[in-house]
């Protein structure tokens, strides 16, 4: 596989935004930069097609640039993340809508969702909110036209190419297919987020 180096974009005085062409390349790049363990790096934030690297003010970005030049984004490697199984009660408010949109039954929605292995592509939106890639094609659906003001904690949703579990009550526009009791974010735990980028996730119906 040919190596395409990340495209480096300026992001203020103390950060670079690395642009990549696939979720796998994002994961490989984030993994390589984490492994480089540069002490000046204070934030390393993978997202859909980018990795944000931020250094401590007063240090510099030179060593980050050097480390980025060494990265092979095609090095998919072995996923070193933890594996999780999340029990879900599939009674979400939008389960029928998701089934109708996909042209399948609600049972088939559950079968697709429990049959897939997801990867935590990145976190954002709220503490412990993971964007889980690996969503089967029929469940890849747009967000609701108008978001809910309050989505209950533990709600399991789908939107775009991702699934998610809401770590706490918040506004949200994802289509809700079920709910889980799992505590996904606890500031007193280490790490505080149960799902961190690179982790593998399966859902099981209960």
């Amino acid at each position: 596989m040919s190596t395409v180096s990340p495209r480096v974009r300026a992001c203020g005085r103390w950060a670079l935004l690395l642009e990549l062409d696939s979720a796998d390349a994002v994961a490989a790049t984030a993994r390589a930069l984490r492994a480089a363990a540069l002490p000046e790096v204070v934030e390393l934030v993978p997202a859909a097609r980018t990795v944000l690297v931020q250094v401590r003010p007063g240090t510099g970005l030179d060593r980050v640039r050097d480390a980025v030049a060494e990265v092979d984004p095609s090095d998919v490697g072995a996923g070193e993340g933890d594996r999780h199984t999340i029990p879900v009660l599939y009674d979400g408010e939008d389960l029928q809508l998701v089934a109708d949109t996909a042209g399948i039954s609600t049972d088939e929605v559950v079968a697709l969702h429990t049959g897939a292995e997801f990867t935590v592509a990145f976190c954002g939106f709220a503490p412990g909110f993971g964007y889980l890639s690996g969503l089967p094609e029929p469940l890849r659906q747009p967000r609701l036209e108008s978001p809910r003001a309050a989505v209950p904690s533990g709600s399991v949703g789908v939107a775009d190419v991702y699934s998610c579990v809401y770590p706490r009550r918040s506004p949200g526009g994802w289509r809700l297919i079920g709910r889980s009791d799992l505590v996904l974010f606890d500031p007193a735990a280490d790490p505080p987020a149960r799902l961190v980028p690179g982790d593998r996730v399966r859902f099981e119906a209960r």
Binding site: C11, G12, A15, L17, P46, A48, R49, T50, L52, F125
Partner: peptide, 10 residues
């Protein structure tokens, strides 16, 4: 734009 990391002052 797909979601991407943000910094203070963005």
């Amino acid at each position: 734009l797909p979601s991407e990391g943000m910094v203070v002052g963005a």
